[in-house]
Amino acid sequence: MVVKQVKHWLVARANAARWRSIQDWAEARGAEFTQTRDGLGFLVEARQAVPGPLRIEWGLSQRSYLPGTELRMRCEVGLHPDLQFMVLCRTLMENLERAVFEAYTDTLKTRVDTDTPEEMRWLVMFPKFNNASSQILRQRYGIVGVTKDLTGAWIEGELGEALVQASQDLLPEGHPFVLMCMRGNIYLRTEMGEADLPKLQGLVRLLECAARAAMRLNGRVADAGAWPTTTSIAFTPSTRPGDVY
């Protein structure tokens, strides 16, 4: 027991030094930085962030399609629940579509059940938006949403430009990445082998950009009354307490 405790302390101390720049950045933003209990990951919580409270986690992946460690983030903006969109790496989209097809044809299932992550369910449930004005957007990302009109309004403009820019360095071709608007919040999840401050900052900016784009649509949805709802709202997310999503 003593040896285990000493080993844990050494790991936590070493990682604290590795993540010092991230801790300094978080605290400069008025956020709280804490290590996970095992000392192998960290959590950043910025309760007063703009455009909404921000939660950042880095640690072991919670998704089978992201090997190793991942960065996951949530920005709470209180959006209309019918605002449901997703943009993801096109290679990942094709892999997930193949996995869904194989899983549910091999077992003769005719529906996607609640054990399947939203990322996979939405590829079956929602229409794809294939008319992005940018060729890079069309080539590098898969885009789906509750309606094509709303999805297009979300992805075009500032967010689309940010995704195109990110494809040049932050999100190289084939790098697993998912950005979602659901349950009133914006979520981002991506593979990240080592916690890297510049990449983390870039992804936070992308998340915030997606949040602003969704907030611009929020009033439009609320004023128009009932947009088409989706069965995904009825699903209960399969996450553990404290998870980003």
Rank of each mutant, 00 (worst) to 15 (best):
A211G: 07
Y245V: 12
N15C: 05
D115S: 14
R18M: 08
R140S: 12
W25A: 02
A224V: 02
V6M: 08
G174I: 01
L40D: 08
T91H: 07
T69H: 11
P228W: 07
A226T: 09
P228V: 06
L206Y: 09
T230L: 08
C89W: 07
T239K: 14
M215F: 05
R98A: 12
V146R: 13
I136S: 11
R74W: 03
L108K: 11
L188M: 02
R37G: 01
M120T: 10
T239L: 07
L171H: 08
L207E: 08
W122Y: 08
V87L: 06
D24Y: 09
R212Q: 04
L92T: 07
K148F: 13
E94G: 10
R74H: 03
F33G: 04
A16E: 06
F129V: 07
M182P: 07
P67W: 13
Q62S: 09
L206K: 01
P81S: 13
K7Q: 15
L60N: 11
A14Q: 02
Q165E: 15
W227D: 11
A214W: 00
P228Q: 05
W25L: 01
K128Y: 15
I22V: 10
G193S: 10
A153L: 12
E194G: 10
V2C: 04
M1F: 12
V50I: 01
M215S: 14
A17Q: 13
E45V: 06
L163K: 03
R220V: 15
A46S: 00
D223M: 14
T110P: 00
M180L: 14
Y141A: 05
T231G: 14
G202L: 00
I233K: 14
V124F: 13
S133T: 12
D223N: 14
V2T: 10
W227T: 01
E173Q: 15
